[in-house]
């Protein structure tokens, strides 16, 4: 492959990426299962902030060792713009730090991006939508 072929391949791939169905602000609401299938986060209107969306852990697989994760609020985002909830924070209990965040629904999955500064300095975690909570144990509300 020479330089010309490399540039051609680049342009073809660039034209074929980034095509996603648009989702509205309500799409993010609901129950979302982590990629490891061991916790569920509920996204809904924030009780204490009108027009914002909040995410709270409502189920964990191993309640015996991680029950204290239950109820933790792990995100709050206040503005919906360009197919994403923005202007807020996500929380990482591991290092007990808040990061800037953006949440969007793509291809039926919840994409939660946490970043410092700008979105490009971040990482995305994906969640699967579920209709109902898995069987007990369930976090106390």
């Amino acid at each position: 492959m020479n330089v010309r072929q490399w540039l051609f391949l680049s342009s073809v791939l660039m034209c074929s990426t980034g095509i996603h169905a648009a989702a509205g602000p309500l799409e993010a609401k609901g129950l979302w299962l982590t990629a490891e299938k061991d916790a569920v986060v509920r996204l809904d209107d924030c009780a204490d902030k009108t027009g914002a969306i909040c995410g709270q852990i409502v189920w964990v697989k191993d309640a015996a060792s991680t029950s204290s994760d239950c109820g933790i609020q792990i995100l709050q985002l206040t503005r919906y713009d360009q197919d994403a909830w923005r202007d807020g924070w996500v929380y990482d209990p591991r290092d007990q730090k808040k990061y800037k965040g953006a949440v969007r629904v793509k291809d039926g999955r919840l994409n939660v991006r946490a970043f410092v500064g700008t979105e490009v300095l971040g990482k995305t975690e994906q969640f699967e939508r579920i209709a109902t909570l898995p069987p007990a144990p369930v976090c106390k509300s």
Binding site: E36, D38, I74, Y91, D92, P93, R94, K97, K98, E125
Partner: peptide, 26 residues
């Protein structure tokens, strides 16, 4: 990437802290 690993942290961290920091990480 950021050190964000919410899925893992939600489920695997032992002894998580309920207190949420106020400051945004820089």
């Amino acid at each position: 990437t950021t050190r964000y690993a919410m899925a893992a942290a939600l489920c695997c961290a032992a002894g998580p802290t309920l207190a949420i920091a106020d400051e945004m990480s820089s």
